[in-house]
Amino acid sequence: MKSQNEALESLSRSRLNDLLVWGATVAFAHTNELFEDDAGHDQGVVGYLNFKHLCDLLDRATANGRFTLGDDVEGAGTDVLERGVTPEAFRTMPVFAPNSVSRSNYKGSPGWASDGIRVLLQSFAFGKVDDIKWAQRSNAKREVASQKVLVDATLFNAEDYGMEAVVETPNDFDGVTLVAAHAYDPLTGQYELYIGQSKNPQYRGDSCWHWHVKLLSGGTANSEALVDSTSSLPGAAATSEVDDIDVRIKMPFKSENTGTANV
């Protein structure tokens, strides 16, 4: 169980924060290429594309999902990892030791876990991070928002204030489940990425977060360094050559948590 400071230290130590920042930057750039206002694309399309791109990129960097090799496959697998991303995106992709980040889905919601922290994804409309209604999201997001925050015992005795000193977490994961909330507005080019512990408000005006911090923000996601105008969706092969990177793809991760992914 972790306090906010401990959770942030774990994110830094495991480099999940680096993974999320890299993934979001590349995902927003991909979404920027595909968005067509004249084709009727709206915020729902933006959220879905960001979600799908993020899942693909986080699995790509951590050797999970479709980037997990079977028992009869050997090799570094860099040829597979390069497909569908630009050379610059591949070059800047954070490299993780095998099995250091595992897939840890919760009730159909994709998650990635390391060092006692599990991260789920949630889209929101730009500028509305404090207005997310978890009760109107998936069952997974609603239940995760029911976790009680761990009070830092070094600040004061929580019990003296009638506060909970233990975090109640979904019983399939021995740790704290956080939410990475992402937003991109293709019309203005603005984007945001937050990480925090969600909360179901208890009264009018109550926050939807126990705490959250901003990992990334900017005025435009249309960066030529990350977007290749000759490619579109992940899966299209990049044409430029890059130096080989020693990346190992791990064995399959088996989980009983299956179901339909929730954006």
Rank of each mutant, 00 (worst) to 15 (best):
L216N: 12
T86S: 15
A61I: 09
P87N: 09
V213D: 11
W134M: 06
D18P: 01
N157S: 08
T25K: 11
V263L: 11
T239R: 12
A225D: 15
H53Y: 14
G70M: 08
V45F: 14
E9N: 12
S232P: 00
L226P: 00
H210F: 07
V247T: 08
E168G: 05
A237R: 13
C208L: 01
D131P: 01
D243F: 09
V167E: 06
W209D: 04
D228Q: 08
C208K: 00
N17E: 14
A158G: 10
T68P: 00
T239M: 08
M93Q: 14
G47P: 08
D38N: 04
I195N: 08
D174L: 07
V119D: 11
D72G: 00
S207D: 10
Y161L: 15
Y184E: 02
N50Q: 14
V227E: 08
H210D: 03
Y106S: 06
W209Y: 07
Q4I: 02
A261P: 15
G47Q: 06
A89T: 06
D174G: 01
D71R: 09
N200P: 01
L49P: 00
S3I: 00
Q190H: 15
I195E: 11
L226Q: 05
G175Q: 02
K199A: 11
G77S: 13
A7Q: 07
